[in-house]
Computed example of a mutant assay.
Amino acid sequence: MPNEDGTLAREGALDRVPEAFAPVVAAARELTGGAFAPGRLHSACLYGSIPRGTAVPGVSDLDLLIALCEEPAEEDRAAAAALEAELDGRFDVIDGASALLFGVPTLLSERERYDLGFFVACLCTPLLGEDLAGRLPRYRPTSLLARETNGDLHLRLPRWRRRLAAAGTDAELARLARGVGRHLVRTGFTLVMPRFGDWAGELEEMAEVFAAYHPERAEQMRTAVAVGRRPGDADRAVLAALIDGLGPWLAEEYRVAHGVKAPRP
């Protein structure tokens, strides 16, 4: 539910973390605090199913956003990769760990105000250090927010086609399938988000909200959910149908409804 003033409520909280994942979260806080050179780390957040309280042991991954005082350097990226490997190797309850790495100047920039800024303020749960949401606006489910969060599908489709053609192993296909399925679902949801008037956290909920406005595309979107949730089962033909069928239609609908995302370097 949105806040009383119609702004979007933050979707996660530390008190929603399932008990099985509490040791992982505690370790993530401790390890992140010591992973980077002195003076580099500003703060860290959790996002995804663990802070939403919907994580499944052995299935869900641990997602971190790490904010650095300055823009990331190669040694920071190496430290983040080592952190991911340490958490993944130590805990069987998670199916991998990932850490997004950004500098505070980028997260608070005007260019990212309605993309990464929104992500930090509404989709991230503070874990360590300052909560940057205090320096960001309150967000509403507007066409501007839709455009800046997911208005880049037209740029992704050619890259996905190239990756599908080049995928030579099941692991490569699965990595592509996970990204394609999840991005299509989120884009479909944000297409209709201004009319829906709220945010949805889970892929299944996003797909059903979308289906209420575009029932003729409901089955394609549910297929995208299945691909995103179980990428190891992805069929090359099904993935191609999503990229070349649902993808172009969705990109054009998005362009007409919200425009395209402001260019990034």
Rank of each mutant, 00 (worst) to 15 (best):
T190G: 00
R140D: 06
L164S: 06
G168T: 11
L157M: 04
L132N: 05
V192P: 01
L191A: 06
L144P: 00
A174Y: 03
Y139W: 07
E205A: 10
E130M: 08
L157P: 04
D170A: 15
S143T: 14
G197D: 04
R147A: 11
A146W: 03
L144C: 05
A177H: 04
G201Q: 02
T190K: 04
A177N: 06
S143E: 11
D198K: 12
R195A: 15
R156M: 12
R178E: 15
R178Q: 11
W199Q: 06
M193H: 03
M206G: 02
E202R: 15
P158V: 12
R135V: 07
T190A: 02
V209K: 00
E130G: 05
A165S: 14
R162E: 15
R135H: 12
L176R: 01
A165R: 13
V185N: 00
D152E: 15
R195H: 13
E208P: 06
E205P: 03
L176Q: 02
T169P: 01
R156L: 15
E172C: 03
E148I: 11
G179V: 09
L145E: 02
R161F: 09
G168P: 04
N150P: 01
M206H: 05
R182L: 14
H154P: 08
M206R: 11
R140H: 12
R163W: 05
M206W: 01
G188E: 03
L203C: 04
G201D: 05
E130V: 15
A133E: 12
P158A: 10
E130H: 04
L155K: 10
R159A: 13
R159G: 08
T149Q: 06
H154F: 11
A133K: 11
T169L: 06
Y139S: 07
R140Y: 11
S143D: 13
A207I: 01
H154M: 13
G134V: 08
G134M: 07
A177Y: 04
R186V: 07
D131E: 09
R162C: 07
F189W: 05
D170W: 09
G151D: 03
L136R: 06
A200V: 10
R195K: 14
R186Y: 04
M193W: 08
M206C: 09
A146D: 00
